[in-house]
């Protein structure tokens, strides 16, 4: 009950801005600055049209792109790669996390390995993935799944290791089997952390797939972007980049909503403070 008072006081100190009109005005300002800079650059700023095409041309390029079959096929390839890579990384990462958390020794021995894998710059391996798996979609999936595996497995293991003993006592007291303990106790208690690992995995997969397509591929939006760049079709290049941004943000939103803890009392660690910021290109 003192909560109302203390909440009030907390608000006084860390007032969350609620004036949405001002917020939108500020965002609009940023947009205007970007657009203004662009218009200035292509106009009086005299930036060469070989670097920055006029905004109008980019928009008409976008309009053209979305009516072509090529674009939608490329989009399909990219999204397919992302989903398969994510599923692979999630299944392997989460099950390995459970497996490793079964005994203290296993957990202790493996946790640093996973965290080192987390720190490892997987992107440097991509040229080798091309060598091993080929230039097709296989190398994108393999690379993105590898990159996303580590954060998922690491966070799963960390989550499972920090399950409060009091819950496990209940399991022991009621004679729960290992599988039942995994399913009904550990999975539930570690859920927020596992989901947080999966959300990181979503971002890592998206980042990795696009990067891989840019670095070497023969299909997908990243490939189209790279091709537009190398053939100096600038409006297309900017257009695809913007479309890709929209696709990535949309996909991220959708998957994140799907991976948000829904049960009351299991608040997700705030998106900002989750261990996350461990994302890499």
């Amino acid at each position: 009950m003192a909560t109302t008072e203390s909440a009030f006081r907390a608000r006084a100190f860390r007032a969350r801005a609620k004036h949405s009109s001002t917020v939108w005005a500020l965002r609009l300002l940023l947009l205007l600055i970007v657009v203004g800079a662009w218009l200035y650059g292509t106009g009086p700023g005299e930036i060469s049209f070989l670097i920055l095409p006029p905004l109008g041309e980019v928009f008409s390029a976008i309009g053209g792109l979305v009516t072509t079959q090529v674009f939608w096929t490329a989009l399909g390839v990219t999204v397919f790669e992302m989903l398969v890579a994510f599923l692979l990384a999630a299944v392997v990462g989460v099950s390995l996390g459970f497996f490793l958390s079964r005994t203290p020794l296993r957990a202790q021995a493996s946790e640093p390995l996973l965290s080192w894998g987390y720190m490892f710059p997987v992107v440097l391996l991509y040229p080798l993935f091309l060598l091993w798996v080929g230039v097709g979609i296989g190398s994108k999936i393999a690379y993105a799944a590898t990159a996303a595996f580590f954060p998922i497995a690491y966070n799963t293991l960390r989550g499972l290791r920090s399950v409060d003993e009091k819950y496990l006592k209940v399991g022991v007291a009621f004679g729960a089997s290992r599988l039942a303990t995994d399913r009904h106790i550990k999975a539930g208690a570690a859920r927020p952390m596992i989901l947080s690992g999966l959300r990181i995995g979503v971002s890592v997969v998206m980042i990795s797939v696009v990067l891989a397509e840019l670095l070497g591929s023969n299909a997908g939006l990243g490939y189209e972007l790279q091709r537009a760049a190398s053939t100096l079709r600038l409006p297309d290049e900017y257009g695809i980049a913007l479309l890709l941004l929209v696709v990535a943000v949309t996909l991220q939103r959708v998957l994140e909503l799907a991976l948000r803890p829904r049960r009351p009392g299991q608040k997700a660690p705030s998106r900002a403070t989750e261990p996350a910021a461990q994302l890499d290109e």
Binding site: I207, G222, A229, A248, E281
Partner: peptide, 13 residues
């Protein structure tokens, strides 16, 4: 969370 690499070609320009 988004692939910042999609800005790479533009940065190169």
């Amino acid at each position: 969370g988004t692939p910042k690499s999609l800005f790479l070609p533009v940065i190169m320009l």
